[in-house]
Simulated scan of single mutants.
Amino acid sequence: MGCILKGGGGLYSRLVVGAVVLAAGAGSRLGGRPKCLLELGGVPLIRRTLIALSGAGVDEVVVVLGHHADVVEPVVAPFPVTLVRNPDPDAGQVSSQRVGLAALTGKLDAVLVALADQPLLNAQDITALIGAYKKRPAGTSVVFPQVGGEPGNPVIFSADVRDQILAGDAHVGCRQWRGAHPEAVAPFVTDNRRFKVDVDTPEDLERFERETGHALRWPAGLVTPA
């Protein structure tokens, strides 16, 4: 944890935060297309995620690719991120989490795991989550947004939790660690529904347009392998 100057000349601590962005899915419920490339206002969702993380001052970002890696990679390549590929994306989200957590190289205070298909998430939301982590109750190591009593994303946790996850069995990811250590988990209770909105199905796309008045569109000319 570094220190930076306050306006009045004093010092306060600044968390060094890394992020893992999960973008390895097959999009099987959306016709086998990479949902992270859906566009809102002409901007792919994964780019929106990376812009939000950058705007919140996240120090290191790893993007985990898998299915559709060859079409997703050129979209994110201009960003200062580390790209890694899950060699077995069909093994599930836990496997992608572990690949991403292992690829973080910096000396971090906390790690944030984000989805690549949350259309409305912005830098202010990420900043609020990091702020909630800073103010977490004593003895807790994981903070997640809770909206209307339901969990949302992203999730943020200590670098020590990252190390424990990677030291565990291959089936252990953030959710499994949280389940085994409920006393170390605290909700960030908020009414901000941006933490809950993601897209998995055609019905999600229709609901998003109905509720926001904005449509998510596939990029022109998107061709994915059969």
Rank of each mutant, 00 (worst) to 15 (best):
L65T: 06
L65F: 10
D70Q: 15
V71D: 15
V72Y: 01
E73D: 09
P74Q: 05
V75N: 12
V76I: 15
T82N: 00
T82C: 03
V84Y: 09
R85T: 14
P87E: 14
D88M: 07
G92K: 01
G92I: 04
S95W: 09
Q97V: 04
Q97F: 04
G100E: 07
L101G: 08
A102R: 14
A103N: 09
L104V: 01
T105S: 12
K107P: 08
K107N: 14
K107L: 11
L108P: 13
D109R: 04
V111M: 02
A116E: 00
D117R: 04
Q118N: 10
L120V: 03
L121K: 00
N122S: 14
N122V: 03
Q124N: 06
D125M: 05
D125Y: 11
D125Q: 11
I126K: 12
I126M: 12
T127W: 05
T127R: 15
A128L: 05
I130E: 01
G131L: 03
G131A: 12
A132H: 10
K135R: 15
P137Q: 09
A138N: 12
T140F: 10
S141C: 06
S141G: 05
V142W: 10
V142M: 08
F144N: 04
P145V: 02
Q146L: 14
Q146F: 04
V147S: 01
G148I: 00
G148S: 01
G149I: 05
E150A: 08
